[in-house]
């Protein structure tokens, strides 16, 4: 039981999330990839709290705030996507180019 396997695990999950955010055409798919990256960061923090014995158990507190911000991000992001879908009838990001000059 060491810290390094957990850093490896979260690096793998973070890379998978980056891959999804770069290649998905569906905007909801991109939001799901963002959730993967948030969770990779949380795994890192919790493992650091367990193995490095951080002060004031910051590794437990910080993920709570990350989860809070992730929930706010998901709510606002999905509201934007719904609003876009109502306006231009698509969620595919290469078709959403109304702000492109």
């Amino acid at each position: 039981m060491m810290l390094l396997p957990f850093i490896g695990l979260s690096a793998i999950i973070f890379a998978i999330g980056i891959y999804g955010a770069l290649t998905r055409r569906n905007a909801i798919g991109i939001l799901m990839s963002l959730e993967l990256m948030f969770n990779a960061a949380n795994i890192n923090l919790v493992a650091a709290n367990k193995f490095l014995n951080l002060e004031n158990s910051i590794g437990i507190i910080f993920p709570i705030f990350i989860i809070t911000i992730a929930a706010a991000e998901a709510a606002v992001g999905l509201a934007i996507i719904l609003s876009l879908y109502r306006q231009i009838k698509t969620v595919y990001v290469e078709k959403i180019n109304i702000m492109k000059w």
Binding site: I12, F14, A15, I16, L22, T23
Partner: peptide, 21 residues
């Protein structure tokens, strides 16, 4: 469901994961 950047994205992600590790 994926765009044409697939190969490039896989390379970038593998590089990123190995760099972090």
């Amino acid at each position: 469901q994926t765009n044409e950047q697939k190969g490039l994205a896989i390379t970038a992600c593998l590089l990123l994961a190995s760099a972090i590790t």
